[in-house]
Design a binder for these strands. Structure first.
Length: 123
DNA sequence: CCGATGACTCTGC
DNA sequence: CGCAGAGCCATCG
């Protein structure tokens, strides 16, 4: 059909894959934007993740709060309502949040269970 | 078409 | 650990 709808579809597909990747993050764990992007099939497009999450409706009940920057920092501007909400949710899951930062060495997916969860060796 | 912006990441100093 | 620069990509004026 029209190219415009085609473009719209492509955008929806990106969002879909990204949303699924985010939803796959285990409770009590966190992942970086880059990791999600790669996992969704868009390596190098970390910014795309942030864009999609910001546009994603809350009714999807997406665990967006489990997505942090590569250094473990909250990816949202400090002081905003969303920022505080993310901190709150993480703590509620048992994730340590110190000064808006999470020790990914301990809660990151590539600490030890990386392949067990993301790699999906087939169990 | 170009410049600016941003829920990004990496490298170098 | 912090700062600057460069790469990256979609959206907006």
């Amino acid at each position: 059909m029209t190219d415009e709808l085609d473009d719209d579809e492509a955008r929806a597909l990106r969002a879909q894959r990204i949303i699924e990747a985010v939803a796959a993050i285990p409770r009590g764990r966190v992942a970086s934007y880059g990791a999600i992007a790669a996992r969704a099939g868009y390596p190098g497009r970390a910014r795309l993740i942030g864009r999609v999450l910001g546009d994603a409706p809350d009714r999807l009940k997406l665990p967006w709060h489990r997505v942090l920057r590569a250094d473990g920092r909250i990816g949202i501007p400090a002081g905003t309502a969303s920022y505080r909400e993310q901190c709150k949710r993480l703590k509620a899951e048992g994730v340590t949040v110190k000064d808006g930062r999470v020790p990914m060495s301990a809660f990151g997916l590539d600490h030890d269970l990386d392949r067990a969860i993301w790699g999906m060796p087939g169990a």
